[in-house]
Nucleic acid binder design. Structure first.
Length: 597
RNA sequence: CGGGGCGUAGCGCAGCUCGGUAGCGCGCUUCGUUCGGGACGAAGAGGUCGGAGGUUCAAAUCCUCUCGCCCCGACCA
């Protein structure tokens, strides 16, 4: 491609709206532009990167038996009503009516549609197992798009679906997908961390998220360096500390004027926060009854949770325990309505008729805690579970944090941030049952198909690669997904027709050899071209100028390493080819076998 | 949805406090000189100051409403 013809513009200055490096560099390098919050245009260079990534998706999916299909972005609501998600999902789903006033939506994902497709075609165990995938636009009306391409509303996603006759089949395929995902990310230059994850709105029995570690990530992971345990904070567990099981002392009310936080309480009574009980008031939206049209009525359930004062509630754990749709903090009025007092909440003496009382499993073994007294400016000392109150539910309710003991080996956990670049789910039969996707086995018995789902977002992956591969001058693309392999910088001026001729010849020769060349034939100064080359991050840069030409050489610089060398003109193609091969080898050397964590 | 910030030329910004009809740098166009890490000179083009209402002789500037974008939080397959 001749740069003089390329539709692009590099920016010298950082656009004010771009906060994170990948966003800034994607704009500055002319890969994309923003249309509106969470909506982006891809420009030619960005499009080439996207296509290369998606080609890797195809190769790795095909390698594990995947067959590419394509399903529509616009869905009729019917299948979503069948699965129930039409009613479960909130404003994240964009809904509209077609001209016939039928309910329609934009696909956020494609479990329903593919299950519908498969139920039409699959009827026998002989047709299983089956793996289908597609690369398609999805739309999720995120409440808050952010961080450039990391969290957007419209995005392209590769999602694959597996269909097996039983869970054993799924269990056999799942590790293959796991391996394929490592291959994909490594081929893109990212070393992911696979973590156990919450299944969220997808449902199912097991899930892994593939995380690219970066401080700009929006997820927190807990990692054990000793035994390699790692999990998303949403599901991470830890070994709860042992506590001295001192003899219960008698309950005692103490005056604590103005002390309405754990911090202040610990300070006021000169005790560690671990000696206190934290009361948390939430309201959960839970399913109540199902209406005739399949829609589900929900009701608000007041939840009173007690965790030790030095720990944080994990809302995902609470949500899952309650099978709640969503969770919100209770209002002051709601709290007072059950006889509790914000800032001074106590599980003793509250109206239990309308509430669910949950306590973290550390609480029953922690004697003599300080809790609120359900009145302003007062706390109880020596609150003891079992003697003073009992809960409806006792379970792990708290969030693992940096320094907590690994659940497997008790070494201290480390907390890191990451971007979720992909995920895999064992869906099981949630969708096949709901939509009636069944097959007949050898005995003529009907069974629901067992499904798995495997997704990767293209744009988010591109941004994550940039987060990892950049320097103060710009992007450093791995050759596997670089928009071009070679940047041919011509330093020709009107007075040096020989340089122009040489550059033109090289451009032709390199392309003939199968290399993807971006030829900077623009009438710009050397500095501008070099800076743009660094910004664009093409792996190999060739510089053609009078100086080198006089000596019969071309300068080559490797963007990744910064190393430069000279290639004799008569060995140009072979020399560049060798350098490109070395870049490929660098990427491919990262591939290795993984076993499912 | 709560909190904060910002909308003035393609990009980055000043002007607003104290109303008087818009400016700087980069980029862009033309000509000349220059030419191996973001050149120089000269001459230009480009903005209903996010939008609507209001106050005023006069509004980028003051008031009201509204739309959009960014950040923190909530949320997040």
């Amino acid at each position: 491609m001749r740069m003089s013809k390329l539709f692009f513009q590099t920016l010298r200055e950082v656009p004010a709206d771009a906060e994170i490096v990948s966003h800034q560099l994607m704009l500055r390098a002319g890969l994309m532009r923003q249309l509106a919050a969470g909506l982006f245009d891809f420009m030619p260079s960005g499009m080439r990167i996207k296509r290369k990534i998606e080609q890797i998706f195809r190769e790795e999916m095909d390698a594990i038996g995947g067959q590419e299909i394509l399903m529509p972005v616009v869905n009729s609501a019917d299948v979503w009503k069948e699965s129930g998600r039409w009613y479960e999902i909130g404003d994240d789903m964009a809904r509209f009516h077609d001209r016939g006033d039928r309910d329609m939506c934009l696909a956020m994902t494609h479990e329903e549609v593919i299950t519908d497709l498969v139920r039409q075609v699959i009827s026998s165990y002989r047709q299983l197992p089956l793996v289908l995938y597609h690369i398609q636009t999805k739309f999720r009306d995120e409440p808050r798009p952010r961080a450039g391409m990391i969290r957007v509303r419209e995005f392209t996603m590769k999602d694959a679906y597996s269909f097996d006759r039983d869970f054993a089949g799924l269990d056999e395929f799942y590790p293959k997908a796991y391996q394929a995902y490592f291959n994909i990310f490594r081929r893109c230059g990212i070393e992911p961390v696979a973590v156990e994850a919450d299944v969220g709105m997808m449902g199912g029995t097991m899930a892994h998220e593939f995380m690219a570690l970066t401080p700009v990530g929006e997820d927190t992971l807990l990692i054990c360096d000793a035994c390699n345990y790692h999990a998303n904070r949403q599901v991470a567990t830890f070994r709860k500390p042992e506590v001295d099981s001192g003899a219960p002392l008698s309950l005692e009310k103490v005056a604590t004027p103005g002390v309405n936080t754990i911090e202040a309480l610990a300070e006021f009574l000169q005790i560690p926060a671990a000696q206190t009980a934290k009361a948390i008031f939430m309201v959960a939206e839970v399913e109540d009854s199902q209406a005739a049209d399949g829609s589900v009525k929900t009701r608000d359930q007041f939840v009173f949770a007690v965790v030790r004062g030095d720990m944080e509630l994990n809302e995902t754990k609470m949500t899952n325990a309650l099978k709640a749709r969503r969770l919100r903090p209770a209002t002051v009025d709601e709290i007072r309505a059950i006889g509790a007092e914000p800032g001074y909440g106590s599980p003793i003496d509250v109206d239990r008729s309308q509430i669910v009382l949950m306590v973290d499993d550390l609480i029953p073994g922690s004697p003599n805690l300080v809790a609120g007294a359900n009145e302003i400016d007062a706390h109880y000392k020596n609150v003891n579970y079992g003697r003073d109150y009992e809960a409806d539910l006792v379970l792990d309710l708290v969030a693992a944090a940096e320094g907590h003991a690994c659940p497997q080996c008790e070494a201290p956990l480390r907390a890191v941030r990451g971007v979720e670049v992909g995920n895999i789910f064992k869906l099981g039969t949630k969708y096949s049952k709901a939509l009636g996707a069944t097959y007949l086995d050898e005995n003529g018995e009907s069974h629901p198909i067992v499904m798995g789902s495997y997704g990767i977002g293209s744009g988010r992956l591109i941004a994550s690669v940039i987060e990892h591969h950049n320097d103060e001058n710009g992007i450093k693309w791995p050759i596997s997904i670089a928009p071009y392999h070679v940047m041919l910088v011509s330093l020709a001026t009107p007075k040096t027709p020989d340089v122009t001729a040489a550059a033109e010849q090289m451009y032709a020769d390199l392309q003939a050899a199968g290399l993807e060349v971006l030829y900077d034939d623009r009438d710009e100064r050397a500095g501008v071209k070099f800076n743009d080359a660094d910004l664009l991050g093409i792996p190999l840069r060739l510089t053609v100028g009078g100086r080198g030409l006089k000596n019969g050489v071309v300068e080559m610089k490797v963007r990744r390493t910064g190393e430069s060398s000279e290639i004799p003109l008569d060995q140009l193609v072979a020399g560049v080819q060798a350098a490109a091969d070395a870049e490929w080898a660098f990427i491919n050397s990262r591939l290795k076998e993984e076993t499912l964590a």
